[in-house]
């Protein structure tokens, strides 16, 4: 069992990391930022897996399994849509090549 103060320390420091990392994101990529953070907020899947990972099939396990499905949608959907978006951001040369291809 981790001490509550250790957890609070980790939490506070993580807030600072989040603050600085997020301010570093270029405004042009704010949409991908939202979908990536969608994806990584799917980290609650760990909690869901722990609740769902018991041997006995009972109500908590069933709820846990639903939570796993929902969190997995977030993770896969979030990363996939970010990937799709990021592929679209091209430099001048790449955009010109792409234009030629489509013609």
């Amino acid at each position: 069992m981790t001490d509550i103060w250790t957890l609070l320390t980790i939490f506070t420091l993580a807030c600072f990391i989040g603050y600085y990392v997020v301010w570093g994101v270029t405004p042009a990529l704010h949409s991908p930022l939202m979908s990536v953070s969608n994806a990584i907020s799917g980290i609650v899947i760990l909690g869901a897996l722990i609740t769902a990972g018991t041997d006995v099939m009972n109500l908590p396990k069933a709820l846990g399994l639903v939570a796993v499905v929902l969190a997995a949608i977030n993770i896969f959907g979030g990363f996939a849509v970010s990937h799709r978006m990021l592929l679209m951001f091209k430099k001048k040369k790449q955009a010109e090549n792409k234009n030629r291809e489509t013609k």
Partner: peptide
């Protein structure tokens, strides 16, 4: 959920997502 399950990874990533949404 991270605090309730004592899971540091949930706490760290949750905090970063929270910060991201708050800043946006």
């Amino acid at each position: 959920i991270g605090f309730s399950l004592n899971n540091t990874l949930l706490i760290i990533i949750g905090a970063i997502v929270g910060a991201s949404g708050a800043i946006l």
